[in-house]
Design a protein around this nucleic acid. Structure first.
Lengths: 149, 149
DNA sequence: TTCTTTATTGTAATCATTACACTTTATTAT
DNA sequence: ATAATAAAGTGTAATGATTACAATAAAGAA
């Protein structure tokens, strides 16, 4: 349902990019809009199959690829074994916790960063990926250590 | 052969990290040292099989994982379908050309960049990945356009 | 309505990576 | 040195995300 106030904007954007606004694709966009957890294709499929029983996993993949091409969503390649998707297309950083797997967003200003080595290159996308251990996991580890004593 | 003057340093580093300096691992490190093209596991395997006929692809994967853990090499996840490896472990950016697939290095100074959102997080790795079209491909495209006229 | 294009679906294939069990090699203690 | 122990190498089989493909359905244009 409610894809927020940006709903009409989205439709307009899709039309402009000649991407058909199929039922499935709207639902996928909707899902990404409501779940800002950078879900995988499989998570999106699992999240929608109840509402769209006919949904095929292939459709999810196809749709995601189309939406990426239309620049409506962003594809994140953090781990090698799965892609994640993000409805926010502005450049921002992603931190992946190596313990719990959660992905956190953070701000990065890279628009004005154009390295000398890439002069005369056409830069289409700028990605920043940090890895480590998130605050939550660090705290949990700390507690576990205390309990062991 | 000659892994450059850093050879002894490498051995020392391996010993310190309790990583055994097996024949295969030295060869893999050697390969990465001589091929600064960010090769995949498969490319490393193909590049070494002539010299080490007994080499197993599993060994390549296992070795690479060990060397990554020991922080002797860096794992790059640019595309979702394959990992690449880099003997340079200092933080630097990688540009992947979406046309020819080549990967270019560029300098990024991120040591002092610690986003507010990640305060109290333990950051182990900082990756910067750009995508687009490299100078070479842009020039080739330009030439092709001219020939078509 | 009919034609043409684009999207959906399900199944089968692909392909990088890992699991596993076994053999070989290296290290440590005797 | 030699035996005992631990780590690494090897080959095959499994895993799992993604794509290829062919058929069907839906949407847009004429």
């Amino acid at each position: 349902m409610e894809i927020e106030p940006t709903y009409r904007d989205l439709i307009k954007e899709l039309k402009e990019k000649k991407i058909r606004l199929s039922y499935q694709r709207v639902k996928i966009l909707d899902y990404l809009n409501q779940h800002r957890t950078h879900p995988t294709a499989d998570e999106i499929y699992t999240g929608l199959i109840a509402e769209i029983p006919s949904l095929s996993k292939t459709t999810v993949y196809n749709s995601l690829n189309s939406l990426v091409k239309a620049n409506l969503i962003q594809e994140l390649t953090i781990e090698d074994n799965e892609n994640r998707y993000d409805i926010v297309t502005e450049t921002h950083g992603h931190f992946k916790c190596e313990e719990c797997g959660r992905i956190y967003d953070f701000k990065v200003e890279l628009d004005s960063f154009n390295p000398e080595e890439l002069k005369d290159f056409q830069i289409n996308q700028k990605g920043v990926y940090f890895k480590g251990i998130c605050k939550k996991c660090l705290e949990t580890n700390q507690k576990n250590l205390q309990n062991e004593e």
